[in-house]
Nucleic acid binder design. Structure first.
Lengths: 235, 235
DNA sequence: TCCTTGGACGAACACCGTTCTACGAGTCGA
DNA sequence: TCGACTCGTAGAACGGTGTTCGTCCAAGGA
């Protein structure tokens, strides 16, 4: 038997750590971890790959591009939203409000992930599950089918947009901006508006900046639901 | 007099075209042209500078960063929105609907610029003008001040989000996707859902894909306005 | 045992926003 | 008229980005 040959010096041996093999779900989970730690803008193919101890090219064997990866992350996040066990048509407005707040809780707990869902049709399994639940509920309440179907659009937009806005504020706070001071400046700006061109805004500066995010969110939901209510056939 | 010396060959003369000097508004106008031609993702400092025959660094003398440039472009676009001359409280719902559609017309005519306004408080002059007008109208109608103030939020979100969604579809069409085929595929997808877990979605596939963007937009506006209506003190 | 196949991955490409620094033209005071 | 000084103009570069190419290796089937 021939003795083992020495390594040719410039043939560097590949590092042989037998890491956990890559997989779609491992990549998604890692991306989610990066998202939570550094926000959506921190989720780059390089960053995720680095976290897995590899290079960006390796990810493309499991995920066709960044957009798909983000869609998968979104679906993973949405799956955390806890839905009620069964629809309760007799208190449908309360139940929908609860769902909206639960959705916002989950979405905002993962930084600005809601930006991903804006302008994308929710076709993930969890997302479809929520849609199915809401559709079922609205139909049981007695809304005309076409109204119920279109209402889902509106509710989705409401949830996504508000979650995104909330996360923008959250990021701002995380970056050190004092939110009270911020609203104070806004108030001052409105007060300083020329009263001849913006009389109402100037006069109502107080009213304009009143209300935390949650309160405003609740108001928008309530308005939308009252509007839906008006489509109910007369009882 | 000494004859004119020849140029030293390796001293390349700076190109001396006495171009129009740079200015904030010229840069904004150029950025808007690029936006219209190539969409928001095409608006890069390099691209705008190239269009002006210069390098990206030159822009920073007039604009502090890209975010500010985009804000200026947004304000410029919003200034195209034509508002009614005076509020007409007796037909307030119709008037607001008209304003929403006018806003959408302008916003979508400039590709996906609406993405800029999502999550940013509208403090540009034109944006404030629109807000002032709507606030005035809602107060004249008789809505409680706090309701009117919060309603502005909701209306703004509705307009921005829908404009963004509409522009996403428009981009898709511009990139060659047949929108009929797209909805057909969506319809097929819903029909193919397992009926035991998604009975309503599966059964109502037709209803779900019914309606163009405009029709759905009008519906959402109507729902929101009916909701607002319910806050009117009993006449 | 050989050969195929598919994941891993270093290197590179073409971009991005932003900053540094040098240069040149204009203005203003002496 | 001549310097000094400012300020807009830009080339070059820094440190990032998503994605692709081509090569390598190890596992699995014939």
């Amino acid at each position: 038997m021939s003795a083992r040959m020495p390594e040719i010096p410039w043939h560097k041996p590949r590092k042989a750590e037998p890491r956990q093999p890559l997989s779609r779900s491992l990549i998604v989970e890692t991306a989610l971890r990066v998202l939570d730690a550094e926000g959506l803008s921190g989720v780059t193919m390089r960053r995720v790959a680095q976290e897995l101890g590899t290079g960006p090219a390796s990810l493309y064997a499991h995920v066709s591009n960044k957009e798909e990866l983000l869609d998968l992350v979104l679906e993973r996040v949405v799956s955390e939203i806890r839905m009620p066990l069964r629809p309760e048509p007799e208190r449908w407005k309360e139940q929908i409000t609860e769902i909206c707040f639960e959705a916002q809780r989950v979405l905002t707990s993962h930084r600005d992930v809601s930006l991903v869902s804006l302008g994308s049709i929710p076709l993930g399994e969890s997302q479809l599950g929520i849609t199915e639940f809401l559709l079922d509920l609205l139909l049981r309440v007695g809304l005309p089918p076409q109204v119920a179907a279109w209402a889902l659009d509106g509710l989705g937009q409401l949830i996504d947009t508000d979650a995104y806005e909330a996360s923008v504020y959250a990021e701002r706070i995380a970056r050190g901006t004092d939110i009270g001071e911020y609203f104070g400046q806004l108030h001052g700006f409105l007060l300083a508006l020329p009263a001849d061109r913006f009389p109402n805004l100037q006069r109502m500066a107080d009213t304009m900046v009143t209300g935390e995010g949650d309160e405003r969110y609740a108001f928008k939901i309530e308005v939308f639901l009252r509007g839906l209510e008006s489509y109910l056939p007369a009882a």
